[in-house]
Design a protein around this nucleic acid. Sequence first.
DNA 1: ATGTGC
Length: 512
Amino acid sequence: MSRKQRKRKEQRAKRAARKTQRDPGPAVELAAAPYAGRKVPLERLDATRFRVPQTGAMRTHGVVYADERTLPDLAEDRCLEQVANVATLPGIVGPSLAMPDIHWGYGFPIGGVAAFDPDEGVVSPGGVGYDINCGVRLLAAEVTASELKRELPELVDALFAAVPAGVGSARRELGLDPAGLQALMRDGLGWAVGRGLADEEDAERVEEGGRLQTADPAQVSERALARGLNQVGTLGSGNHFAEVGVVDEVYDEVAAAAYGLRLGQVTLMIHSGSRGLGHQVCTDFLADMLRASERYGIPLVDRQLCCAPVRSEPGQRYLGAMGAAANYAFVNRQVMTHWARQLFAERYGCGLRTVYDVCHNIAKFETHAFEGSERELLVHRKGATRALPAGHPLVPAAYREVGQPVIIPGDMGRYSFVLRGAANSGRSFGSACHGAGRLLSRAAAKRRYGGENVAARLRKERGVIVRGASRATVVEEVPEAYKDAAEVVGIVHDGGLAERVVRIRPLGVVKG
DNA sequence: ATGTGC
């Protein structure tokens, strides 16, 4: 081992030790993980699905959506062990599922879907993630790419100025106080409609109507409130972005027409979440949930799976706080939408219509057909998108004949996709993938591309204009750090979870 | 993801 490798290894060990020390709550006795340290076997079910066999403490099997080309990526990290670990939790209904963009996450894998019985099952912050209701809003502009092309650099600059981006990005002009913030979290998109920041059509075209009714702002800590006060309408960092794109391929004319999307049309995609507020809610409740796991005798194979019975007092409090943070995220994306609308109106005299807005990180009560009967379930989606098929009553009336729009952002160099929820999505409790999925860790991307000017290369090679709040983030988000979104989307399409409607090519990107 | 790690 070289000196450099050894140093890196020591640094990793140190970081891991610090992380363990930081972990909140009491020491918890852990049960044996089903595949601890062993290679997780995968049994082929069909062209797009593999089974993780039930073993040890697992209460059900796992199902992983993948194909030969993405299988080697899965072996790279321990995400398949996490799929098996989730299957050990009480009250899980159906398999522990993984979408084709699965990768390692906190406790639950990112790209994981797990449904729980409301009476027998649990709710877990690890099944939602730190960025509660991270999600994507897709907007359609009444302008074509050729009309806008010359002014693109100015447009990206103007967007960069209009939407605060980066770690700690803040905005004061909404003038919220803690009570106002609580009202915002209670009413979600209704709050924005009441203040002229949204119209009724927006609310119809946001998942859940832009308001989780389980929200209980009283469960959000003062610290979380303080962090959230000045961050409504801000992008954040990491993989969050606001991206101007153009529809460059239409696969399904009927569905595209229903969504109001046509070839050459300009789009704006906003990817953000609940910022510091949601992060703080997650942090606050991890400690609670660890205590609850002990109190209710829930055997854990990983302390990051800490959870509480859905109907228990701590479970209800988490659901209340999580719902409040989710509503905050809906409003966050809406306020950025409002500012982008002002900008498009001033510059082009055109509108920006909400196509749809989906959650990526959420636990929600939903009714799904399971083994022949309709059941109310608490569905955890962590890095997964709801994908309801045609005819489902929760799909907005204008889209009901074609199915719910499923917005799948890819990397900032290649393309993103819009799909429609399809007939087999019942197999995944109405879910599909949420993105391309990382190929390189942030650290690996930095090592490989840290020396070059990624933004300049994207402009030269692909004509994409990138403005980032931080150069480091742009490097971490280099297209080569992601899988080909077309491949991931292909698995979801072939598996019948969601079907391709249009492809969107990026023109200009604002990054955190 | 995150006032990004003590």
